[in-house]
Simulated scan of single mutants.
Amino acid sequence: MKPAEAEAVPNLAIDPFDKVFLGDPYAYHDMIREAGPVVWLDSVGAFAMARYEEVKDSLRDHETFCSSRGVGTLDFAKETPFRPPSLLLEADPPLHDRTRSMMNRIVSLKALKELRPRWQAKAEELVDRLVERRRFDAVKDLSEIFPMMIFPDTIGLRDDGREHLLDYATIVFNAFGPDNDVLREGNEGKEAAIEWVAEACKRDNLKEGGWGMAVFEAADRGECTHEEAERLVRSFLSAGVDTTVNGIGHMVLALAGHPEEYQKLRSNPSLVRRAFEESLRWDSTVQTFFRTTTKRVEVGGAEIPEGQKVLLFLAAANRDPLHWDEPDAFRIERNTSGHVGFGFGIHQCLGQMVARLEGELIGTAIAERVASIRLTGAPVRRLNNTLHAIDSVPVEVEPA
């Protein structure tokens, strides 16, 4: 039911989950931002925000804009999700604090430092093979391949069925949107992925020495229950795959489309971290997330009642001209501090350090081996209710 407060804010006749919108969301973001700090979308029956300050403040204020009632269209206080809620993404304190602090001890800087030499060797090996070919698909041959070379072994997943990981991430992020054609078409033929992940996260199917088994060892120490451990291992599989695949794909797309920026990276490879962060800001993999208000709140002069879904346009916030200088431009020397590509506040993406390291390693390997990179065809998008996913980026490289 549309609340009376919705009549006091701009009402926009757009559907952010329509195929046309999802195919090119940036064509609509100016309209949403310029309409006001808070708008109402009849298509989803929710308030929405697209300006940087309001989006960032809402992500930070987890007490008012909660996640435990779902970060998608479903309100978990009234509806049942397709799988048990995440104990990280769809949880609030004190549960979230307990589980997140435990997982942060596993996915630590120390752990990543130990993994870095092995991951770097894999990145260099993969890029060497692709440079030798000269022409390749930066998604199919690179950004989908590299995470699958290293991440399943890091978690300690069983060897069979690992191909289901990419399908599972698609299903999870699609489910944050409505039950529409994008959801049904995107999930078609991927049903086996849910069953495989459920089995793969069980203790008996995990290998010793991986992050997955480390979660169960934490459960043995009483830091969580063993049922919670299965769900926390599952969180690795949605946080550490598809977002990284698209993040690396977008970085290569950005560099190929901006040769002058790529030459800056060639001249100064230490800019690779900034290049990856700028690609996340410039084309955010995760476009939107919902929150639910726990009380009546005023935002930018607008009143939002308790119990209302609020759609936060993360990608629009990352290109808000009120915050960023020339926001549509891709500039690797830009200071991107505070971008919300990984969220903001306590619910920032669990896999962000993994994604950043993978992006750095691939970006460095390319900068050291490739003199130039160019697109040989139009990029192909893969529609998803939450992700600005990319299916193909055909490129040709000139060896250094």
Rank of each mutant, 00 (worst) to 15 (best):
A138F: 06
A138Q: 05
A138P: 07
K140Y: 09
K140H: 12
D141L: 03
L142S: 06
S143P: 03
S143E: 02
S143W: 05
E144D: 14
E144N: 14
E144H: 13
I145H: 11
F146I: 09
F146Y: 15
F146N: 01
P147V: 08
P147N: 08
M149D: 14
M149V: 09
I150K: 02
I150C: 08
P152E: 00
T154C: 08
T154F: 13
I155K: 02
R158V: 14
R158T: 13
D159Q: 14
D160A: 14
D160T: 13
G161A: 08
R162Y: 11
R162P: 14
E163C: 09
E163K: 07
H164V: 09
H164Y: 14
D167P: 07
A169E: 08
A169N: 08
T170A: 11
I171S: 01
V172Q: 01
N174Q: 09
N174H: 12
F176C: 09
F176E: 10
G177Y: 07
P178M: 06
D179L: 10
D179I: 11
N180A: 13
N180V: 13
D181I: 12
V182Q: 05
V182P: 06
R184L: 12
R184S: 12
E185I: 10
E185W: 07
G186T: 09
G186H: 05
G186N: 06
G186E: 03
G186R: 01
N187A: 13
N187K: 07
N187H: 10
E188R: 14
G189N: 11
G189D: 11
G189R: 05
K190Q: 09
E191A: 14
E191R: 04
E191P: 08
E191W: 09
I194N: 04
W196G: 04
A198G: 11
K202N: 07
R203S: 08
R203D: 06
D204G: 01
D204E: 15
N205I: 03
L206I: 08
L206C: 07
K207R: 15
K207E: 14
E208Q: 14
G209I: 12
G209D: 13
G209V: 13
G209L: 10
G210I: 01
G210C: 06
G210E: 05
W211M: 15
G212V: 02
G212Y: 04
G212A: 11
M213F: 13
A214I: 10
A214W: 03
A214E: 13
A218N: 02
A218V: 05
A219C: 07
A219Q: 00
D220N: 10
R221P: 07
R221A: 14
G222W: 05
E223R: 00
C224T: 04
H226D: 04
H226S: 07
A229M: 04
A229E: 02
R231P: 00
R231A: 00
R231C: 04
L232T: 02
L232M: 13
V233F: 05
V233Q: 05
R234D: 03
R234M: 03
S235L: 09
L237S: 02
S238F: 15
S238N: 13
A239R: 01
G240Y: 04
D242F: 04
D242K: 01
D242H: 06
T243D: 05
V245G: 01
V245K: 01
G247F: 05
I248H: 01
